[in-house]
Write a protein that binds this DNA or RNA. Structure first.
Lengths: 244, 244
DNA sequence: TATATTAAATGTATTTTTTACATTTACAAA
DNA sequence: TTTGTAAATGTAAAAAATACATTTAATATA
């Protein structure tokens, strides 16, 4: 019975092949640039590759697309399998297709970037073997075209965080203004004026100021804020534009 | 001899397959959103599909990636084969991978948008059978996820033309200020103030004002301008940012 | 050759946004 | 109670964006 069912599924697959039979097929991979933010530094999660070719070298987290999933699903599966992480912000940004980009075999790779809160509980210590966080400007050389991918991801992140409120994905749910400023300073790689930054963020009017304070950074303590997504979406409908 | 040579090339192909043998392979397509600008209207070039499935319906121009080319090459080849157009501005922007997006067979499609000068000589009359320009807001329903692709391409075009001087790709080499303004008005779908627009463009200081006038639009005639790419690139190096 | 017509060309005052910048405050630790 | 430390706060100046009306150059026509 099992064999029969396998056969019939194969037949289905074959029937679907009727239209474009003569075309070349290729391997499709996904690679993920995983960004994290720790104190004042933007970081990227890399792994030591544990299979050939280029075994032992630093690499992005990646894997192959399977027949029964779309690319977003593949990216999430790969990420989850290799790191245990799930339900995080992820976005496809470019597809790499140079013929010899992967010496193992002709492979086209669709690159994603992901944003995670490094201090979230799903992380607590558990980084898989061979995975390591690197400060962006201290990252090692990567295999294939992965360096290029990281650079393009940084550019995209830089652009997008200025017009969409995705930066909050890199922070804990509750954060101080100073943390938010540090985040933007590290992403944009520049110094920002403290007062102007706070004024600007307050004008956006999409954060809730909490009654809690973070006491780790000073005697006085600094108020915690939380991104109010509902409010943001309401304002969007009214034509509001996020802009840092 | 021919057979031998074929065999050996097959062997080479097989040798390359050693690393990722068990992974699924898929068809990779490219689809092109070709934008043109005519008088006051942004347009898109569509074709009546002449093969199954969905034969006879309106579609983007597309084709399959071949083993011996990268995606940019595929996009250019497909465009050239189907329309005769070559050497134009083209940019990859998103990869579509829903499992049933193409009922013919599982196909992942990498979408490109292209910008052309509708009045350039390589066009002179010769539009292939079944191809037709449509005003953006009067375009027909398209097959598969092509409507989605066009919408995303428009968004990308809108964003990018505001920060990069790619709009000129849609105009003839020499153009009037009014044509340039019409172009931006149609891309951004809004009215712009004539004097402010001219002032802003002049401040950018990347156009050459020619001694020629275009006499078709008025008795007085209006001066022709030309984008000075060299000047633009020099200014870029000095930290200049294009912004309309 | 004078007149009419049409779109092109031009500048400024006002408003809004961005920038630069220094003092006081709240709390914990000594 | 004093001290040290980062947090909190507001305003004036500069720059950028906006709103807006008249004159001009050329052809066509009377």
């Amino acid at each position: 019975m099992k064999i029969t069912s396998k056969d019939s599924s194969k037949k289905d697959a074959n029937m679907k092949l009727q239209y474009y039979q003569k075309e070349d097929q290729v391997l499709l991979a996904v690679d993920c640039i995983i960004f994290g933010f720790d104190k004042k530094d933007l970081k990227v999660l890399l792994v030591k590759r544990d299979f050939e070719p280029e075994k032992g070298k630093w690499s992005l987290i990646g894997g192959f697309l399977k027949r029964n999933e779309n690319l977003d699903e593949a990216a999430n599966r790969v990420l989850n399998t290799l790191t245990g992480i799930k339900d995080i912000y992820m976005e496809q940004f470019y597809t790499y297709s140079e013929i010899d980009r992967d010496p193992g075999q002709r492979t086209i790779s669709v690159a994603y970037f992901a944003l995670i809160d490094v201090h979230s509980h799903q992380f607590d210590g558990i980084l898989i073997d061979g995975a390591q966080w690197f400060k962006l400007n201290k990252r090692p050389q990567l295999i294939f075209d992965h360096n290029q991918m990281v650079q393009k991801a940084i550019n995209r992140l830089r652009r997008k965080t200025q017009t969409k409120p995705i930066g909050f994905e890199l922070l804990p749910e509750k954060f101080t203004m100073r943390q938010l400023q540090n985040l933007y300073e590290s992403i944009l790689d520049c110094k920002l004026d403290k007062r102007n930054f706070i004024n600007k963020v307050n004008q956006l009017d999409i954060l809730d100021k909490l009654d809690e304070k973070d006491m780790t950074s000073s005697r006085k303590g600094s108020f915690l804020y939380r991104f109010n997504e509902k409010k943001y979406k309401e304002k969007l409908e009214e034509g509001f534009n996020f802009k840092i």
